[in-house]
Amino acid sequence: MDYTHTFAISAAGMSVERARVDVAALNLANAQTVQSTDGKNFQPLQVIARSADQGSFNQLISQGMQGASEFTRDLPVASVEVSGASPRQVYEPGHPFANAQGFVSYPGVDPAREMVSLMTAMRSYEANVAAMNAARTMALKALDIGG
């Protein structure tokens, strides 16, 4: 049925929002981890959601072969990238990983920002579910025709 296209669109949106939640949870989980003195540390991540690249020839051919609708070309795709926030320096002279000046560096995670992105991702996920449910209800209503 044609409604599977709608489902695929909503599923792509849900995947992006899930990636957002995953990354926010990872950032929050690593917020209090210490950066060791050898520079190995956690880099705060962020999700960049883009509309799918439709330029490549192979992609267009495969979509044409599958008979995808015109809307499924612009599905969102999430990519996880390092946000590049500078580490947070905390003065803890007694800490085993403190540097010569007594500072320990923690990842530059902003908890408030992560909470907001969690909330936004959750609401967007709900919106995607609502869109999918609308398509489903329409399909089931169409089956009621004449019955």
Partner: peptide, 17 residues
């Protein structure tokens, strides 16, 4: 991902309907 399972369930239900 859980939503894919649910979507497959819904598709199966709709085709059965």
């Amino acid at each position: 991902n859980l939503h894919q399972v649910m979507i497959n369930l819904e598709e199966a239900r709709m085709s059965f309907q």
